[in-house]
Simulated scan of single mutants.
Amino acid sequence: MNLKCIIVDDEPNAVNLLEVLIGQTTGWQLVGKCYNALEAIAFFKKQQADLIFLDINMPQLSGMELAGLLPTETRIVFTTAYAEYAAESYTYQTIDYLLKPITLKRFLASVKKIEAAFEKIPLVQKTGEPDESNYFFVKSGKTLRKVLLEEVLYFEGEKEYVRLVTANEEILLYRRLKDIDEQLSPPFVRVHNSYIVNTKLLRKFQDNHIYIGNKQIPVSEKFREGFMQLIRQRIF
């Protein structure tokens, strides 16, 4: 797998170790090494990365504070000597949490976890233009119709089929909502046993309900944390 990754850590030895581990055990491209959060912010103004190895305790701006400023498409692996931040780390787009000193065995386990995660999500776009390839075909009668994911408001499960809803139409799909959920990635998120929503198009979230298009959708306790992980990244 060809991932573009960046290391952000104020300890040169930690940066050197990760560089060696990445170079010797993966086919990933290391596109940046930063020694504080400000350097990382400058990097992301000019370039993009699929994955960031991010230390937590750094001067000026901590790794947790930087995580909230990263592009939502960039996934995070936190690297730290402190276990107490683990729970908080997963409020971001976090794939793994590596405790220092990082061993080869633990790093290899992380590589498997990272690549498995990226098999389910698209790599970041190389330009700021909309991804016209982000589409799929659905069968409607004897016709295959092209649907752009960015236009979908939500999917609603109804027994043997799923209702796909955009601002202009509704299409019935003879699929299980679970199967569709497994093929989608952020900004789509499961919020209820019967609903998957496009968080980019929701109007507001209030009293455990999402308002999207003309629909009011409940957020169940089972799926609330996954939904809030995406929303927290956009709260000012």
Rank of each mutant, 00 (worst) to 15 (best):
T79L: 06
E182L: 01
K146H: 08
I114N: 05
C34I: 04
V219Q: 14
G23E: 14
M228T: 04
V147G: 15
E225N: 03
E115N: 13
E84W: 06
Q60D: 10
H192M: 06
Q125I: 01
F78M: 12
E158Q: 14
T143D: 15
N36E: 09
I217W: 02
R176T: 10
K222Q: 09
Q93I: 00
D181A: 00
K113W: 13
Q206T: 00
V165A: 15
K46P: 10
K4W: 05
P187I: 03
I7T: 02
E65L: 06
P187C: 06
N214G: 13
N13W: 02
K33W: 01
Y135A: 11
D50Y: 08
F188P: 02
G68W: 12
L123S: 08
S89K: 09
E151I: 00
Q216F: 00
F236V: 10
G141L: 08
K33T: 04
F53R: 07
Y174E: 12
K113V: 09
Q60P: 00
V197P: 02
S110M: 07
V189M: 09
N214K: 13
C34H: 06
K146R: 14
T103V: 03
K100L: 00
E158L: 14
T74M: 15
Y85P: 02
C5F: 02
V111L: 00
T166E: 10
R176S: 11
I7V: 07
S133R: 15
A49G: 14
E160H: 12
F107D: 01
N13T: 09
K4H: 13
E88G: 03
L54I: 01
H209I: 00
L173G: 04
T25K: 06
K46H: 12
R203G: 13
F53M: 05
D131F: 02
F118M: 08
V219Y: 11
I102L: 14
F136A: 15
E39S: 04
A40T: 05
Y161D: 07
Y35F: 15
S133V: 08
P130N: 03
A81L: 07
F236W: 14
G23A: 15
A37G: 05
G226S: 09
Q206S: 03
A87N: 06
Y92N: 13
F53N: 07
K33Q: 14
D96S: 12
I56H: 03
E73R: 15
E84K: 10
L153C: 11
L108M: 06
E11Y: 04
